[in-house]
Structure formats: structure tokens, C-alpha cells
Simulated assay, not measured.
Amino acid sequence: MANEYILTPEGKEKLEKELHYLENEKRAEVGERIKVAREFGDISENSEYDDAKNEQGMVEARIAEINQILSEATVVAAPKKSNKVTVGSIVTVDMGGRERVFTIVGAAEADVAEGKISNESPVGSALLGHKKDDVVSTVGPTGREVTMSILKIEH
């Protein structure tokens, strides 16, 4: 069964930029590190060479992962005139007196540090389909119940 990737237009663009960087700059940089490390002599005991080869493997794996995501992804734009939370919505919620702002995105572009939460996460999936002033409860990642009041929805 294939993974279903959901991306916002911004998420697709970010992945395309990362892919371009990896294919056109990082790949050449790592190749140069391997070439220089080979010049140090015996590669069987050469940590520089091993590190460069490991990095090359990680770069190639990430390139393959991004290509797969981009080839299988469904790009969704938040509807401009919706009063419900959808993928792409920026939602302001009150969580027990603390205001939080989340952007609902697909799992492939989720980044909690940037406030981008997956539509598949407990909080993200709980918010989907709700309107301003709705009170939503879910079990958070820590196992505790989380209750949120939706203050604002932007697209």
C-alpha cells in the first residue's frame, strides 16, 4: 500500500527547493569530500572517507525520499472562503488560557518547532472540520486530554 502524502503548495515548493539543493550543491560537495579523503591514502582506515561515504548515503536516501513524496503527493490548497479548519488552515486556539497558533499541513511537511502540525496528529485531526468558537477535545501525544477552543481560522 502506497503512502498518501498531502502537501500544501508551500510545502511542495520547500521540498522542491531542498531537492534542488541536494542534487545540485550537496551531492557535488560530498563527492569532493570523498575525492579529497581518497587522497589521504588507505581508505580501509580512513575516517574522513567513511564519514563522507556515510553522508553521501544519507544525501542519496533523502533525495530518493523527496522524489517519492513529490511523485505521490496530493497538493491541497486551503479554500479561500471556508469557515472550517482544513489542511492549509492557520488556526489560533486557546488551550487552557494559553494561545497557540497551528498551521495544519500534511505529515511530510510537519514541523512542530514552526507550529506546523500534521493533519494526522491527534491535535491536527481533532481540529479538522471544526469552526470558530468550537471546543475540541483530543488525547495529546503525552496521553493527556487536550481541550481547545478555536479562536480564529485563517487560510
Results as ranks from 00 to 15, higher is better:
residue 108 A to C: 04
residue 127 L to E: 04
residue 124 G to P: 04
residue 38 R to S: 11
residue 108 A to H: 06
residue 35 K to D: 12
residue 103 T to D: 02
residue 69 I to T: 08
residue 89 S to T: 02
residue 116 K to E: 00
residue 103 T to I: 01
residue 39 E to K: 14
residue 110 A to N: 04
residue 118 S to D: 05
residue 39 E to T: 09
residue 77 A to L: 08
residue 100 R to V: 15
residue 97 G to L: 07
residue 78 A to P: 09
residue 116 K to M: 07
residue 83 N to R: 12
residue 109 E to N: 01
residue 85 V to K: 11
residue 59 V to H: 08
residue 42 D to H: 03
residue 91 V to S: 10
residue 34 I to L: 09
residue 123 V to L: 02
residue 45 E to Q: 15
residue 104 I to L: 08
residue 88 G to E: 05
residue 82 S to A: 13
residue 130 H to S: 11
residue 56 Q to A: 12
residue 60 E to K: 02
residue 50 D to M: 14
residue 104 I to C: 01
residue 45 E to D: 11
residue 86 T to H: 15
residue 78 A to M: 02
residue 71 S to R: 13
residue 85 V to Y: 04
residue 34 I to S: 05
residue 45 E to Y: 12
residue 113 A to P: 00
residue 55 E to T: 07
residue 122 P to E: 01
residue 42 D to N: 13
residue 120 E to T: 15
residue 74 T to C: 00
residue 107 A to K: 13
residue 92 T to R: 11
residue 127 L to H: 00
residue 133 D to Q: 11
residue 41 G to F: 06
residue 123 V to I: 12
residue 108 A to T: 01
residue 60 E to S: 01
residue 74 T to A: 04
residue 75 V to Q: 00
residue 40 F to A: 12
residue 65 E to R: 12
residue 46 N to K: 02
residue 119 N to Q: 12
residue 79 P to A: 10
residue 68 Q to A: 14
residue 92 T to K: 14
residue 128 L to E: 09
residue 118 S to H: 10
residue 74 T to N: 09
residue 38 R to H: 03
residue 135 V to G: 11
residue 67 N to Q: 14
residue 101 V to A: 07
residue 102 F to T: 00
residue 33 R to P: 05
residue 89 S to D: 05
residue 72 E to V: 04
residue 132 K to D: 03
residue 117 I to G: 01
residue 135 V to Y: 02
residue 87 V to E: 07
residue 113 A to H: 03
residue 83 N to C: 07
residue 83 N to G: 14
residue 86 T to S: 14
residue 117 I to Q: 02
residue 109 E to M: 05
residue 68 Q to R: 15
residue 87 V to I: 13
residue 132 K to H: 04
residue 78 A to V: 12
residue 53 K to V: 13
residue 87 V to C: 02
residue 80 K to P: 11
residue 44 S to L: 06
residue 115 G to Y: 00
residue 75 V to W: 00
residue 103 T to A: 09
residue 46 N to T: 11
residue 74 T to S: 10
residue 75 V to L: 00
residue 65 E to P: 08
residue 41 G to Q: 08
residue 114 E to K: 13
residue 33 R to T: 06
residue 45 E to P: 06
residue 75 V to P: 00
residue 60 E to F: 05
residue 65 E to S: 12
residue 131 K to F: 04
residue 127 L to R: 03
residue 65 E to G: 10
residue 74 T to F: 00
residue 98 R to H: 14
residue 94 D to Y: 03
residue 80 K to M: 13
residue 116 K to T: 07
residue 46 N to D: 11
residue 118 S to A: 04
residue 90 I to L: 10
residue 33 R to H: 09
residue 79 P to I: 05
residue 131 K to G: 10
residue 60 E to N: 07
residue 51 D to T: 15
residue 108 A to P: 04
residue 105 V to R: 02
residue 55 E to V: 09
